[in-house]
Design a protein around this nucleic acid. Structure first.
Lengths: 192, 192
DNA sequence: CTAAACATGTAAAGCGTTACATGATTCG
DNA sequence: CGAATCATGTAACGCTTTACATGTTTAG
């Protein structure tokens, strides 16, 4: 349900084809909301039939074609309703902590592997998010640049601040997970 | 895919009916993996046809019946493969941080409401998990008690330690989210 | 006798994943 | 001319949610 708002957020900055959108998606919103192409194209179609976006068919070379979408007034309104509306939190469903709770049934090797993997996984995320933060702070973020180009200069600080803030939250979360896993590894040593 | 392992974890301690399981589920594993009854009953059936568990029909009063399930050798093995196997992390999909990244498009009121709600939501989770931790530490946890009853005393410390550890991770995560939201509220003041 | 608790599901719809499928264009 | 990139999907399957659906037993 959030996918369409992620797509609208990108399209609100300017018209894009499904392909461009998908590329841009991967290196911006995709960091907080993954979606494969096979989900993006059908969703764009659905959004068009619902009147949130409109597409124009363009030709590319002799036989090539691409469909460039832009946000309609309805889509803009839907986006604003989403950002201004309440967020519903989904139920807890946490494979890592579920497994952690039953780790005593695992072998010594599997316990260590689990915790090391947890630390590794979140370290990768941490790096990704730190790099993203760096790009935002240094003004080298592709989507943010496009975004600021259509934003009054008086709003630049605010716009950047919210982007930074979002990624800071992700960085802190990753750090918390890494600390937890490392404390777990320490615990394994203490227990043996 | 984790649901069945959560169910197996409970059943491995001792046979239970779908109803008992569902009640126990809500106050133990349900804290890290939510599932409604309408998902539990069909899953039990599927697990039975796959040979992971076996059910015995019991009568209750004149017309009443209940099906009591126990774990088969195959189910036990499947559970051990799960705890000993690698955990696959799902792709990032984070509604709260997605929205946070576009908060500058929201009105001042909606921004504050979002962050306050985020803090409130995670404060509730924090309380739930702290209470759970307290029950684990004081030996008043229903599932853990049943569990320890079938565990050699030499393993009690270890078993309890892993449960504590899992919930500590959840507590720390909730605290991180609350701190983040509160820093965001501070940021709103600073920006205005 | 009535409410709460016991007991067990079905059906439909939505979202997401994975695998499959195809073709055009541009650059070197 | 071949590889990379551009461009767009379909199909099948699985998990989750929500709503609906029904009946029994026990305690007060």
């Amino acid at each position: 349900m959030s996918l369409r708002y992620a797509l609208l957020a990108l399209l609100r900055v300017g018209p894009l084809s499904g392909y461009d959108l998908q590329k841009l998606f991967a290196e911006s919103v995709g960091h907080v909301w993954h979606a494969p192409d096979s989900q993006i194209y059908p969703e764009l179609k659905r959004m068009e039939t619902e009147g949130l976006i409109a597409g124009e068919e363009q030709s590319r070379g002799v036989r090539g074609r691409r469909r460039v979408y832009h946000v309609t007034d309805g889509g803009d309104q839907a986006f604003l309703e989403w950002v201004n509306g309440p967020l519903e939190y989904s139920r807890v469903r946490d494979p890592a902590h579920l497994k952690a709770a039953y780790l005593e049934s695992a072998g010594a090797e599997a316990r260590r592997a689990f915790l090391e993997n947890h630390a590794r996984h979140h370290t990768e995320l941490l790096h990704r998010w730190q790099a993203e933060l760096e790009r935002i702070r240094s003004g080298r973020h592709p989507m943010l640049e496009r975004r600021l180009a259509t934003t009054p200069q008086s709003e630049w600080a605010r716009t950047t601040a919210f982007k930074e803030f979002a990624y800071e939250g992700l960085v802190e979360r990753a750090q918390t997970e890494i600390r937890w896993a490392q404390r777990g590894l320490q615990m394994l040593e203490d227990l043996s």
